[in-house]
Amino acid sequence: MAEIKKKATRESYGEALTELAEQYPNLVVLDADLAAATKTGIFKKAYPERFFDCGIAEENMMGVAAGLAAAGMLPFASTFAMFAAGRAYEIVRNSIGYPHLNVKIGATHAGISVGEDGATHQCNEDIALMRTIPGMTVIVPSDDIEAKAAVKAALDHDGPVYMRFGRLAAPILNDPATYKFELGKGITLRDGKDITIVATGLMVGEAAAAAEQLAAEGIDARVLNIHTIKPLDEELIVKAAQETGRIVTVEEHSIIGGLGSAVCDCVSAKCPVPVTKIGVNDEFGHSGPAVDLLKEFGLSAENIVATVKKVLGK
């Protein structure tokens, strides 16, 4: 079996911006002194006249993005998720969300897989924060192919979009020849009747791997890739709830307010079934290599397998 290639979705983000720049002449990119890390530096190198560094001032950057959009530009504002969704939350809400301006937020270094930088930079709350803003679209791509398609979809969508990218190289699981990204539509990666594993971002690969292991043990798990947390593909989730009766959600995010909560909101109203959430529990992270942290916090195929078996009483 050929080795699976890996690439961080932040890298895909920087490349996609650059590839799409010609096609979207109003596209401009803002960053807050992190262009080398968010990978908007790739765009900066190719289109220096369309790149604006705002310095270490994320609140102003979000406001500038709002003003650019109000004047007809198509701005992408980039920084780490902690600062985009956390520090600048109120500016995103009031200056971008409330006027429903066409600003795209490219937030990188999301989740526990930031690794060694530790708790201050490991943003496990951004999905929760962003999905509370009316009219905000929230996308969490799982790999390179999906990330690039998502950037294009965000450009074509009229309204604010929050995009969550990772620092860690993620396995490229999708086939560029057949992959199709549709905003707000989940993807059934694997059909199954015993239980449904709903995953997003970096956890999609882990969920798929877990389903393979479970199959070997006679458990037929359905796997859904929910790349768009908001608007949520409620139809797909309700169908899964009806047909499999149990759901396990997996996300590299707090279990409070993220994908798991969104799924609970949906099924509790439309088809109540037991939902078990895998994610970062109500605690801060700490320093360490990303791969080790993911294991420690239960964000692994191994823990998904164990959790599914526990839920099914096997």
């Binding site: 401009v28 406001g63 993005a65 709002a66 003003g67 007809g72 200056s95």
Partner: peptide, 23 residues
């Protein structure tokens, strides 16, 4: 521009002015 949460309007004004420069 929507405004009222203090300190935010001037940033949006900067964005509008920057767009004017770009265009």
């Amino acid at each position: 521009m929507s405004s009222g949460s203090l300190g935010q309007g001037i940033s949006a004004a900067c964005g509008m002015a920057l767009a004017g420069k770009v265009k």
